[in-house]
Design a protein around this nucleic acid. Structure first.
Length: 344
RNA sequence: CCGCCCUUAGCUCAGACUGGUAGAGCAGCCGACUGUAGAUCGGCUUGUCCCCCGUUCAAAUCGGGGAGGGCGGACCA
């Protein structure tokens, strides 16, 4: 595959590349590798799906992909996951990620899955981590992790170890590209700074955009209405999107449009399908959009009203997550064991 | 090891001194207005008052014990 096409696949729909030059050098060479880590904490949602879609692009561009299920990190971050649930949640995460990769049109068996506990407790890793801890100031670690680690009145030491371990993961997994949501930026900038002193290379960083919350502002893990979960029923998806903040003509902070832009259209594009919004005759009848840009233009101009957009968006989003929902519904024990207080 | 402080609604807290049916703001939910949502009005809901024992007719409130959290002191061979 020619390097230009490779670069296009790797960088489409991303929020930032650090740096473009380094990436081009990388994809110009043999079998580059990328990794993304997920800490198995709360239930997986549609925001995860936007990052997963890129994994399919990596595979198409012949970039090797490793997914780290960062079980220790899930506990280290203010004990978001209780220690005894790490294994169950890791299983749920891995299975759900596989389903998403497949839904994005790629083969999950081409991805290497690794758990944190498989290598983060080795002697070499531990020694290197302690050396990093000796060299890194508290404020530097705090700053790196502030967008990722839960911020509380009484921060734990674990939240400071977190970015150091994540940096060491990049080296240990041998990843050329560190990929994640743009919230991970602080941590990987730290990685680029300190890894050279610890026998590693600074990773090329690729950041996915974060989706806005449906209730306006940021998506919140604790606000169920602000996000679509991957196992939400079609009725739940419809209800959440119907209740979404969606001012006519505005693109800013508009979660509904972002869902379409980063999730629905890329997948429709892959399938060669169009977006059809049903609309009563009095408002102009049904409309069809070939690209997200066309839809956004119609929305911005006021030609497409939110009340017509929402039901269509809900149907497409529901359709896109359907294969994942089915896999989860077929294996109820995954969620039951991972979140016993909710599904037990 | 010692001392001091904190724990009340989903969140931030008032109420405790002086015992008498547990409150506010925010959030949430429901209506009105918008061809969606938001904003704005109008209305409504929410509780092991950290746990146990005791005093009392009556304990969030007083006494004792315990748990969790915070702060400080001491020790620094």
């Amino acid at each position: 595959m020619d390097p230009a096409e490779r670069t296009r696949l790797v960088t489409r729909h991303v929020a930032e590349v650090v740096t473009e030059e380094e990436l081009e050098t990388l994809v110009g060479g043999e079998s580059p590798s990328a990794y993304i880590g997920y800490a198995p904490t709360g239930e997986m949602h549609i925001g995860h799906f936007t990052t997963i879609r890129k994994l399919a692009d990596f595979l198409r561009a012949d970039v090797e992909v490793t997914v780290l299920v960062a079980d220790l990190h899930a506990h280290l971050d203010d004990e978001k996951s209780p220690f005894d649930l790490l294994d169950a949640r890791s299983q749920y995460y891995e299975e759900t990620i596989r389903a998403m990769v497949e839904a994005a049109g790629a083969d999950p068996d081409r991805i290497e899955f690794v758990r944190g506990t498989e290598f983060e407790l080795s002697e070499d890793y531990s020694v290197e981590l302690l050396r990093m801890a000796a060299e890194t100031t508290i404020s530097r670690a705090q700053r790196a992790a502030s967008e990722v680690v839960r911020q509380t009145e009484n921060p734990k030491l674990g939240g400071l170890l977190y970015p150091l371990m994540q940096s060491l993961d990049v080296k240990t997994l041998g990843a050329d590209i560190a990929y994640g949501g743009i919230d991970q930026r602080g941590i990987y900038m730290l990685s680029r700074e300190i890894l050279e002193d610890h026998g590693g290379d600074p990773p090329v960083c690729l950041f996915a955009p974060l989706l806005s919350g449906l209730t306006g502002g940021k998506m919140s893990a604790s606000d169920e209405q602000s996000k679509v979960n991957l196992n939400d029923s079609p009725a739940e998806v419809e209800e959440k999107i119907d209740g979404a903040y969606c001012p006519a003509g505005e693109v800013e902070d508009n979660g509904v449009l972002e869902y379409l832009r980063y999730l629905v259209f890329p997948i429709l594009d892959e399938r060669g399908e169009q977006f059809v919004a049903e609309r009563p005759d009095e408002y102009g009848g049904n409309v069809t959009f070939e690209t997200y840009e066309d839809l956004e233009t119609a929305f911005t101009s006021g030609e497409l009203h939110p009340a017509d957009l929402k039901p269509a968006a809900a149907a497409y989003v529901s359709d896109v997550i359907d294969p994942i929902r089915q896999r989860l519904d077929a294996q109820p024990e995954l969620l039951r064991e991972a979140y016993p207080e909710k599904y037990g």
